[in-house]
Design a protein around this nucleic acid. Structure first.
Lengths: 241, 241
DNA sequence: ACGGCAAATTTGTTTAAACAAGTTTCGGCT
DNA sequence: AGCCGAAACTTGTTTAAACAAATTTGCCGT
């Protein structure tokens, strides 16, 4: 349950849009109506609406109202979302996850790797490589690097289960922000060796840096997906000059 | 120039982060300091900071301060951004754009197309197909569908130049929101016929719906990019339960 | 019937204030 | 010296109020 009032209003409105209490193309009740409905101030309502707009659920129109523009999407491929562990993503996509650990070692970041990952030169990091299974088929190749200083005590058993669960629940570290880059790259020998690629000669590749609550980047990650098991959704806004 | 005060504070802070006036890893001046610096209220400062966090420039830490987490990225491939015309994207990526119109006709949306695009069945739309050139090489295949009702008078000349410029400056329509989906698909015969593909057998595909200021979806678009000329950046946040 | 203007309604921006909650600092007490 | 707690400082949430700006409504007069 969300602790902040604007978050519960956000979730309530979101649910009502998803179950067509407020239908696509229609206007939401005006801010004044929502204020009395939720017994709160105008700022609080507006904050909830701003979050819905960020999600692409509504669009505000000056002097008119707030239009619902939500369209349910047919779920076919594996949809990447916010910051999630592989198990969380698999569950959200209604697929059965599996993991095989290929490598778990430590190494020291040299200048070439520093440039690529963003880790400071000389830091010691875990180097973790895993094959991810969806419904029994090897489809994703994951590479993770964690600062050993902030993520001590990694074991193959943890890597096979969930590193994020270990980080959050055992180490007590809070994961906050992830910056990601989405590209398409040629397959490598490792892809071919471990994955079920069909006839694809490309992979959908997500590389990212993850920051903790102290604003320290503690993880570099690269996730290589077979093309037909990948999709990502986004909402953008036209920049006004 | 931005009309709102929080926007100019946002841009000022953003510029100071990019030119290392505020360095990565350091804290921004506290809200109270910024309030006196910019002579505004706390809400206005906080709104600017929230925008920077959305962009992945900073991360707020309760009770501590706001940490700068900006890292300049080496620009190699063609970076997709917000809602932009092809010419705008090309300019931002320092490449010379070119366009060849393959087809411009009207057609009526049937049930199959309605399901795929999200347009209502029976609506009349423009069907526009174009090859996009970057520095003289054919690398992107664009498909656009516009509601003829809202975008009347399209011509091949406009399509070769900039449809968005026509929509905004001639028709006076305001473009607001775009919902996009990023996938990787096998190449088609059309890709092979018109583009310089090298040995790739996949394309980075962006499909999207674009909404105007009335919250009406007026455009469906599909943009097929050669893999090495595509990248997309995003910032995500860990959802707290 | 029509045009025009004022009023009402809507969202957008900004200020001010209060309290909550997390962190650091520092002084006083044992 | 070391521990404890209060004070100071930080960001997070909420309320209230005022004005601006865009749109719609409705009334009034011609």
């Amino acid at each position: 349950m969300p602790r902040a009032k604007y978050q519960s209003i956000y979730q309530d409105l979101k649910a009502k849009i998803e179950d067509s209490t407020y239908e696509s193309g229609e206007l939401l009740p005006s801010e004044n109506v929502l204020i009395t409905q939720y017994d709160c101030s105008r700022n609080t309502v507006r904050r909830a609406i701003a979050s819905l707009a960020e999600d692409g659920y509504v669009q505000s129109m000056h002097g008119i109202g707030v239009r619902v523009i939500y369209q349910p999407s047919a779920q076919t491929s594996f949809i990447m979302g916010g910051i999630e562990s592989f198990s969380e993503s698999a569950e959200r996509n209604n697929r059965k996850p599996g993991t095989r650990v290929l490598q778990l070692t430590t190494l020291t970041v040299d200048s070439r790797m520093s440039k690529r990952t963003g880790f400071p030169e000389g830091e010691e990091v875990w180097f973790l490589q895993r094959v991810r299974y969806l419904d029994g088929r090897p489809l994703i190749l994951d590479l993770n690097m964690f600062l050993t200083r902030l993520v001590p005590g990694l074991t193959p058993e943890i890597a096979e289960h969930s590193v994020y669960e270990y980080i959050e629940n055992v180490l007590g570290m809070t994961i906050v922000t992830a910056k990601r880059s989405y590209t398409v790259e040629r397959i490598t020998e490792l892809d071919e060796k471990w994955l079920d690629l069909g006839s694809y000669n490309c992979m959908a590749v997500i590389t990212g840096q993850v920051y903790n609550a102290d604003g320290i980047m503690f993880e570099y990650t690269q996730s290589r997906h077979r093309p037909d098991y990948f999709s990502f959704h986004d909402t953008a806004f036209r920049k006004k000059r």
